[in-house]
Simulated scan of single mutants.
Amino acid sequence: MQECDNPHMLVEKSVALQPYNTFGIAARAQRLLRVRKADLLPDLIGQPGWRPDRVCVLGGGSNIVLTGDVDRLVLKVEILGQRLLRETEAGYLVEAEAGEDWHDFVTWTLDRGWPGLENLALIPGSVGAAPVQNIGAYGLELQDRFHSLDAVDLHSGQVFSLDAAQCGFGYRDSVFKHERAGAQGYGLAGRALITRVRFWLPRRWQPVLGYLELERKAAEAGLAQPTARQIFDWVCQIRRAKLPDPAEIGNVGSFFKNPLVSPEQCADIIARDPAVVHYPLPDGRIKLAAGWLIEACGWKGKTMGHAGVYEKQALVLVNRSDVQHPCSGAEVMTLAAAIQTSVYERFGIRLEIEPVLW
C-alpha cells in the first residue's frame, strides 16, 4: 500500500501494541493506521498495493492475544459517536460507532432512560468488536438486543449492512469468526470491518434475572422487579468482585469458552465428579463451567513464566509481568496449552480458547 497524503489516513510505523491490548502483552505493529472516519475506508482499500489478507482490525484490544510482533497492517478503529435513531411506542433504536467503549455506551443508554443492555455492563472492549464475539453475560447476549450493523468489505471497499440473521450469531460466535468457504461462502473473518452497530431496546422492559448471582442480589434486596439501573449496579459489583480490572492486572476476561456437551457426556462427568457446575440449555445440551473444570485441575492461582491463573476466577488468565520482564504471548499460550491438557486428561473435554490469536 502506498503512503497517503490524507492526514486522516497516516500510517505509523513500528508502534508498540502493549497499551492497545488489555492483556498488556509486549509486541509491536510494523504498521498501524488509526481509522477515525468510516467514509475514508473505501478510498484506502482502493489504493494500489492494498492487501486485505495482510490486515488486522483492532478495536478495544480486550479479546486478542498477541503471540508475537504483527507484520501486517493494523487498522485501529477509533470512530466515535452515539445517537438515538428512532423512538416508538414499542422501544428505542440506538446506534453507536464502532470505536465507542462498550461499557460507556451501556451507561449512556441507561442515563437516557433506555433499558435493555444493563446485564452486559462492564464488559471490556469496543462496540464494533461486540457483535464479533456475540458478547454475553448474566443471562443476556448481544444478539438479544441487536438490530443491525454497517461494515466495509476489506476486499472490495463496498459498504454493507447485516441484520441479526445474517450475522449468524451463536454462543460467543458470529459470521465474523468464520472463514469464507468457496465463492458462495458467507464467512467474514478477515473480510469485514464493522463501522457502526444498532440496538433495539424495548420500552416494555422486563428484568433478566435468570442467573444465580443476580437472583441472590435480588433476594438480598427483597426486590422481585428491580430496575435496570439496579441490575446494572449489581452486575458491576459482581464483575468487580471476581474479575480483575485490566487497568490494574492485564487480562482478556474469560480465556476459555464454557464447553457445551450432551446430556450423556454430562452424566458421565457427574458420575465421576458430582460437584461439577453445569447449566441445562433450551436445546437439550449442557453448558459446563470452564472455570470450575480448571480449578478442579488445580490451576487456580498458579503461574507459569509471566502468565498466571487469577486467584479469584480460574477462567481468567492474567499478566504477572513487571517492568523489566514483560509478559510474552508465548508464555500465555504455554500456560493455556497446559491447562487444556490437564482438563482433557481429567474430564475428556477440550477447552476452546475464547480470544482471537494474532
Rank of each mutant, 00 (worst) to 15 (best):
P131H: 00
R216I: 04
A338D: 14
V11H: 08
G182R: 01
L351P: 04
E179W: 12
M9H: 04
I270L: 15
A38S: 12
P7C: 09
R203A: 12
V277Q: 08
V159M: 13
S174K: 10
R83K: 12
Y138V: 00
D150R: 15
P7N: 06
A267S: 12
G125W: 03
Q313V: 03
W108T: 08
L58F: 08
E141C: 07
I286N: 03
G348D: 02
E215K: 14
G190N: 08
R229E: 06
A165S: 10
T227H: 01
H8E: 14
D173F: 00
L40W: 05
V35M: 04
K13W: 11
L41W: 02
M333P: 02
A228L: 10
N251S: 14
N134V: 09
G348W: 05
V332A: 03
E295N: 12
L142S: 07
R31N: 09
Q184N: 15
G113E: 08
L140G: 05
G81L: 03
L93K: 04
S321N: 07
A337H: 12
I353E: 03
V252Y: 06
L188V: 09
H155G: 12
G308T: 01
D104A: 13
R240Q: 14
G308W: 06
A26S: 14
W114A: 11
A129K: 10
N258H: 05
K37R: 13
L142I: 05
D39W: 02
L335Y: 07
Y171D: 08
E345A: 14
L58Y: 01
H8G: 05
A29Y: 03
R36V: 14
V70L: 08
A267L: 06
W292A: 06
L44S: 07
M1Q: 13
K76H: 15
L120Y: 07
E220Y: 00
V55G: 07
E311D: 13
I79V: 14
G170E: 07
P42C: 11
E295S: 10
A130T: 10
E215H: 03
L120K: 05
A192W: 02
E215M: 14
L140K: 10
G91A: 09
G284V: 02
I249P: 00
L84R: 14
W205G: 09
G348Y: 06
S62Y: 06
L80Q: 15
M333H: 03
W299R: 10
L193Q: 02
E264Q: 13
E352R: 08
P202E: 13
S126M: 02
N21R: 09
A338M: 07
W205C: 10
V332E: 00
T22G: 11
H147N: 13
D268Q: 14
L117I: 06
G68T: 06
L122C: 05
K312R: 15
I45M: 00
L110G: 04
R191N: 09
R36D: 00
F256T: 07
I45C: 04
R320Y: 02
I25T: 05
T303L: 08
P274I: 03
R145S: 10
T341F: 07
M304D: 12
S156H: 08
K302D: 00
I45E: 02
V276P: 04
L209E: 07
R72N: 09
R112H: 13
E100H: 01
L120D: 09
V316R: 02
H8F: 12
V106N: 04
T67D: 15
Y310H: 15
F176V: 01
Y138A: 06
V309W: 05
D69L: 02
